[in-house]
Simulated scan of single mutants.
Amino acid sequence: MHIPWFLVARFGEASFLFPLAALVAIRLAFQGLWKQAFYWIFTLCAGAAVIVAGKLAFEFGGWSVPSANLYSISGHAMLTASVYPMLLTVLGAIGGEKAARSGTRIGIGVALLAAVALIAGRYHTVAETLIGMGVGFIVTWANLRPSRRRIPAVRAPALNSLVLGLLLVVLVPVSLYPIRVQLWSQGLDWLGVTERYSRRIGIDPISGATVVTIIVQWRLRS
């Protein structure tokens, strides 16, 4: 049976998860938890900055650790490991503390499934995926550790409708637009980059080992 891993990996797209992250902040703010909302956005941006720095180092400078098959750290793994546990915890809190804890566990499960999809679909190596997922889980821990976890179980039908409306009105259109590709392309032009590194992941048919091929693309300045 062929498993369409690309569909699972799709749930880790930045254009899909950043609006969800914003919904988490909105939910917290509407409950009066302004400090937690800002802390959530701050830690998520800090985690994303780590991933972007790693990607820039490889794609613009060729930095890598071939012995560990580490080239481009997975942003998909980082985002799924941070956003889904937080999102499902906050929404689960609508039904009470038990539901919030269940939401956390389900979110972690989603992140693990996404990690498997990234590796099985050859989007990232094991090292790239584990590091990205590790950064994401650090963000999750920073927001949901016992000393900070003060998300009350508030039943707010109007607010729930608002969340659903934002999902339909904001999330769907944004998820269809390739934001990352556009910004990355513009960044290359702004920085005057003339070469860009990428890699292709394959499997050796004899040994079954992961084989990574580095590709250098030359770009002319516009």
Rank of each mutant, 00 (worst) to 15 (best):
A209L: 13
A9Q: 04
G95S: 09
V211L: 10
M86K: 14
R200D: 10
P85E: 06
V154G: 09
A93S: 15
K55Y: 10
R199S: 12
S102K: 15
V170N: 12
L23C: 12
G208K: 09
A111W: 02
F30Q: 15
G54L: 05
E128N: 01
W184G: 11
T125C: 03
I108A: 08
W40I: 00
L168R: 10
G187D: 06
V170R: 12
G202Q: 05
L144D: 01
V135H: 00
L44H: 07
G54I: 04
S185P: 05
V181K: 15
R221Y: 10
Q36G: 14
N160D: 11
A158S: 05
K98T: 07
Y39E: 10
F58L: 05
V181D: 15
P173T: 06
G62A: 02
I206E: 15
P85S: 06
I94F: 14
L20K: 08
L87A: 13
G54Y: 03
S198A: 10
A29T: 10
A153C: 06
A127C: 04
I138V: 10
A68K: 07
F11W: 08
S161P: 07
G136H: 02
I41K: 08
L7E: 11
P146W: 01
P66M: 04
V163N: 00
H76T: 01
L23Y: 08
M86L: 14
A29Q: 11
I215V: 15
V193H: 06
P178M: 02
R105W: 15
G121I: 03
A153S: 13
G103A: 09
W184V: 08
A68I: 00
F11L: 15
G202T: 06
E195A: 07
R101P: 00
G121R: 00
L176A: 13
L23D: 08
A21V: 06
L171H: 14
G107D: 05
C45E: 11
Y123P: 01
